[in-house]
Design a protein around this nucleic acid. Sequence first.
DNA 1: GGTAATGGTGACCAGGTGGTCACTTTTGTA
DNA 2: TACAAAAGTGACCACCTGGTCACCATTACC
Lengths: 215, 215
Amino acid sequence: MATAQKTFENLPDEKRERVLSEATREFADHGYHQASVNRIVGRLGIAKGSLFKYFGNKQGLFEYLFGHAVSQFKRPLKEIRDTPSGDFFERMYMSLMAGVDFIDAHPLIYRIYLKMLFQENFPMRETFLTEVRQASTKYLRALIADGKESGQLRNDLDPEMAVFHCNAIMDRFLQSYAMPSLDGDTLSDKADRTTIETKARAVTEFIRHGLGNPS
Amino acid sequence: MATAQKTFENLPDEKRERVLSEATREFADHGYHQASVNRIVGRLGIAKGSLFKYFGNKQGLFEYLFGHAVSQFKRPLKEIRDTPSGDFFERMYMSLMAGVDFIDAHPLIYRIYLKMLFQENFPMRETFLTEVRQASTKYLRALIADGKESGQLRNDLDPEMAVFHCNAIMDRFLQSYAMPSLDGDTLSDKADRTTIETKARAVTEFIRHGLGNPS
DNA sequence: GGTAATGGTGACCAGGTGGTCACTTTTGTA
DNA sequence: TACAAAAGTGACCACCTGGTCACCATTACC
């Protein structure tokens, strides 16, 4: 497999990106099983054999493409966690907007991720999702522990439920942003950045009331 | 089509239920496109032609099965809304538990619904989802308006965002209940009813802090 | 110019899909 | 018992799928 991918990596940048982007679009539109290799090569105008030389098989193509994209997702979150700024709610807001930025940059990848969430039979699903889940939980736990210590969050807070609430609200916010049909018009207009920021602030305030110290 | 379904409705109850339950399982396990009519009839031990006599085609089977289940879902929610009890948060709690009960009664149907949410190409998807969404939004808007009037909710609350927050928290709660893998161990043990009730109470309290009047 | 390595091709394959229909079996009725 | 209506059957169909591989084209190197 390493040799086969080598072939792909030797390709001119332009072609490599075209292949990846067309394949990503196909998976985002149809999920894994319903995605068609024939359609991909058809749109690319290359022979089917080429794709199989590059990636071995359909699953190889998917794993390459998805793994590539995931690595880009981890960086911005780490930056936020490592930011020395102590304000819990500001960090929440920044995490929200980091998600928005990621979706803007890779809308198709995010759609694939959403499908993966609820459609059991993706390749690598279990492996990948547990990784994401653990990372996100660990990230939020650290932030919440921080917030409690600094007195920004209630003392009687159950950390596990707090993680659950933050996860729920943040995920749904991003889901609505990526798929406006989920919540009607509440988050519909992608183009208007300031509207999104306002909504993100409102969500942050909701969390502040829900978790914050009423002092 | 009406004549064809007549044939199915004339069947002995036991067989009719077996057909429906086996088909439901197949769709819940594999989604719509990946579901196989061959597997269904194989497990049922009947000829393929029979299924097509009953429902015309694959989509007919799915619509029949899903529409049937959906009608059962609307009843309990209506009961809660029509309950004269005025307490907003108690109603939230009851809605949560009504969802839990529905999932316990029809776990496969709920899994199909979740797949439908994020996998665009189900038949009837748009029609059905907008119906659900509008119903749920309308339901929550009424409850929230009620809660504001009675002074249980803040005056400065933006109703649309409040609807969004309630929807987000409640949906995620039910999703975690139906698919424990979503939130790690937070809601894992289905068997323990009192644990679920406690979590539902905690969620209600979170909403109370987030939306409630701090008086 | 010769030659080897690499990239690219598309007809072809086995297997699965939803769907059909001429046919047989069972049932209800008089 | 006779006959019609309804239920049930499974071989068959066209189509699409992921995947293969013998062959061709292009490039790089001496």
